[in-house]
Simulated scan of single mutants.
Amino acid sequence: MGAVIAVTGAAGFLGRAVVARARAQGHELRAISRGAAPPEWAGDTGIEVVHADLRRESPPLDGVSAVIHAAARMGGDDAAQAEGTVAPSARLLDHAAGSGARLVLVSSISVLGTAGLAPFARVNEDTPIEPRPERRDAYARAKIAQERDARAIAARHGAMLRIVRPGAIFGAGHLWNAHMGVTLGPLTLGPRHAGELPLCWLAHAAQILLLAATAPQADPVELIHALDDDRPDRARFLAALGRRGLPLGWRGLDMAAGLLTPLAPRLPGLLRRETLRARLMPLRYDNAHAHALGFRPEADFETAMAAARGAA
């Protein structure tokens, strides 16, 4: 295997951060993107830009030691997710595994099933995947399918696989997240509790993904939750943004969603109990696997949020 790291979705929000950090560390890159290359890549001989639409073609992966697969649709229904995320991901990972590369799949903690957890339970890599994905949104279902396919492909080829599940990634231009609740003008309607927000600063996400691509790996499949050490509650998050919140009682929200369960297939995502619990339930989180990989935090929450706001 060569020393080149391939990154799909390289021109996207997360992909650009991975590319920038990798180059700062001296890694050679194959940046795979459907769109135009960012101007800051011009003249950098350490970045080989490959234009490819993963829905229709597989990019060249010869000489690649690891593939960080970050390309995915962020929205859309099941059909759009199948076309834009699930099918291209399976094809890309199969091609990468056949080329002898280590697989690093960017998944999401949205795959986890939290409906059966008690409030303030600790969530880690042993937390089960959602057992009733039909009651969740199309994005969560697509990520569950990606993980299933990645495991099967890695087993078939004997490839090494790391599944990295970032929390809500924030950075310049991407400050808000679905775990906060619903916004009404300057107000935010969300639960009043001291549960942690599963946040991951963009710089930390890039650091963890590069570690996943380069650090020695003993087990054929490893799960890593990419989360900050300093995880604020909702009140602290709103204070950092200078916004006001209208707190709601968590138990009342949960009970109301439970009463609507028979109507779940016809309801918006946040009114489905499983989706509401996944986003708003008071929980604690664990990132010990990221630390075991070598993750070292570079900023606390307020410092990271200030940097993200200042760069926006």
Rank of each mutant, 00 (worst) to 15 (best):
A3P: 01
A3E: 15
A11S: 15
F13N: 01
G15H: 07
G15R: 09
R21I: 03
Q25L: 10
G26C: 01
G26D: 02
A36L: 12
E40D: 15
A42V: 10
G43D: 03
D44M: 00
V50M: 13
A52D: 06
S58K: 06
S58L: 15
S58F: 00
L61D: 07
V64N: 09
A66C: 09
A70W: 11
D78Y: 13
A80N: 02
E83W: 10
G84W: 12
A87F: 04
A90N: 06
L93I: 09
A96E: 01
G100A: 06
I109T: 14
A115Y: 07
A121N: 09
A121M: 11
R132H: 14
P133E: 06
P133N: 04
R141Q: 05
Q146P: 03
E147F: 11
A152N: 01
M160K: 14
F170T: 02
A178W: 00
G181I: 06
P186V: 07
L189G: 01
A194H: 12
G195K: 05
L199M: 11
C200L: 15
A206E: 00
A218V: 09
E222P: 00
L223D: 06
D228Q: 05
D229H: 14
D229C: 08
D229L: 11
D230R: 13
R231P: 08
P232S: 12
L238D: 01
A240L: 08
R243C: 06
G245F: 11
G245K: 11
G252D: 06
A256R: 14
L271C: 03
R273V: 13
P282Q: 04
L283C: 06
R296Q: 14
A299I: 08
A307P: 04
A308M: 10
